[in-house]
């Protein structure tokens, strides 16, 4: 028996929005510690790793480890039926091939339940080693979204150059080129608006904007986003999910032919 209730159901709605355009289907791995998901996009260019800790749910019950294969587009469709104020409960039996979602209004006057078929998905989990990155940039998530959107007008790729002075995002294409520079500003009044850079070594990497724009669908989850980079290894784009977890996107850098 698996049962997990999240009072702030809107968080789960945002989680689905953050992954459903990148992943068609994925397996939620559930154990006593919480729910997690790891999946590559269909072209195997990027990897999504998502964790929701059991402590964030009330109640959370997972009698035995289970893997729930889910069509994320279908799950997202059903979650659109939940109001932002609703609590969301996810239930799955030990033997069943279905999952049930229960949406409950804050005063309990309205309760909806939806049942969905589970899928058999073959999943190969990848080991993601703990890595010390050369540059870790934290910036407002909305700013990062804006940069990716704006530079998509110019080219297909963005080159991110990080030094101790700041971070520069550059794109070029048939119409010309564009550069956006952000200086470090850790001293702003509001913590959420800060741009901070922790740097061991400067680095310059190029990434496909198409994927970064997919990652930016997670923007409503968190006021800040963290970009972790080292030369010649995948970029990590991380959004916190409230106090209960995170979604991390890994994107392989583009390399010169």
């Amino acid at each position: 028996m698996f049962e997990a209730r999240l009072a702030q159901g809107t968080l789960l709605k945002k989680v689905l929005e953050a992954i459903k355009d990148l992943l068609n289907e994925a397996t939620w791995d559930c154990n006593e510690n919480g729910m997690s998901l790891q999946a590559m996009d269909s072209s195997h260019v990027s990897l999504v790793s998502l964790t929701l800790n059991a402590e964030g749910f009330e109640p959370y019950r997972c009698d035995r480890n289970c893997s729930l294969g889910i069509n994320l587009a279908s799950m997202s469709k059903i979650f659109k039926c939940a109001s932002n104020e609703d609590s969301i409960t996810i239930k799955a039996g030990d033997e069943g091939d279905t999952i049930t979602y229960v949406f409950e209004s804050p005063n309990g006057d309205k309760v909806s339940d939806y049942e969905m078929k589970l899928m058999d998905i073959e999943t190969d989990h990848l080991g993601i080693p703990d890595t010390t990155y050369s540059c870790v940039v934290k910036l407002p998530a909305a700013e990062f979204q804006r940069i990716c959107r704006d530079l998509s007008q110019i080219g297909e790729s963005v080159t991110i150059c990080c030094t101790k002075d700041g971070v520069r995002f550059s794109a070029s294409g048939d119409l010309g080129s564009g550069n956006i520079k952000l200086a470090q500003n850790a001293n702003v009044d509001k913590e959420d608006e800060a741009v901070t850079i922790e740097m061991q070594e400067a680095c310059t990497l190029t990434f496909a904007l198409r994927y970064l724009n997919f990652f930016c669908k997670a923007t409503p989850l968190s006021p800040q986003v963290t970009l972790s980079m080292s030369n010649e290894v995948p970029l990590v784009v991380e959004y916190k999910i409230g106090e209960m977890g995170h979604v991390r996107y890994y994107l392989a850098p583009k390399i010169e032919d």
Partner: peptide
Amino acid sequence: MSAQKSISSFFQPL
């Protein structure tokens, strides 16, 4: 021109 590597080439299967 630049090429896109697969993400799985960076991580080992578990």
